[in-house]
Amino acid sequence: MKKDNLVTQQRVRMQAGRAEDGLGPTSDIGSRLRALYGAVQDEGVPNQLLDLLEKLDNAEQAQSQAAKSAPRDGE
């Protein structure tokens, strides 16, 4: 709840800031910027990047599994 409120407040502040600076929803420059940026965002994430993240996560989970199954090895 509290966190949501903070996020909303932040968003309101941000939009106010952008409007002041001529980058708000009705601004020509602002909307063209977001059109370019959004077009790249909408391309999706390349598979090689998704694979990398998957590998990193799997390696870490395997590592923590191994640590769990062999507790206090040295004793």
Binding site: Y37, V40, Q41, V45, L53, D57, E60, Q61, A67
Partner: peptide, 22 residues
Amino acid sequence: MAAEGTSFKREMLATLPSLRAF
């Protein structure tokens, strides 16, 4: 530990499209 790793990954995934555009 494992759960933390997974949520770190999930949060990263959500940010990737914007990070890539930047």
